[in-house]
Amino acid sequence: MTSHSATTGAKDTAPRGAAPSGTPVPDLRLGPQDRPFLPRGVRLAQDRVRGQTVLLAPEKAVALDTVGVAILSRVNGVDSVQDIVADLATTYNAPPAQIMEDVQRFLMALRARVFVGVQV
């Protein structure tokens, strides 16, 4: 997944020079039965000019690679993480454990930005 900011100024999400303190970090790992969804204001779109699929979110456009598209096209608020992983493993004939790791890493990053929500 490559990311480019669609904002108009210079933005830093992690300020330089500020050492992380002892603040606890929420665990954003998804459970196997969790059902991820794209919240309102976040959607997949075809970028016809660049010939790619993008995730559009508040003031951000994220260019998706084929893995990203494969995962997010299965994120619908109905299917669980386990369902999504099983479907991907079948479709791409890949080991479910490996797919689970890819899906987790990808969805956790989006969840941190509130680009993905989770129904428990």
């Binding site: 904002t7 992690a14 500020a18 970090v25 003031e59 509130v114």
Partner: peptide, 22 residues
Amino acid sequence: TKQKVADAARRLRGVMAFDFVP
């Protein structure tokens, strides 16, 4: 400010995203 934003961004991961213009 840098420290507060860094701390809050960690604490609120998944709740509210931060963009910081120092």
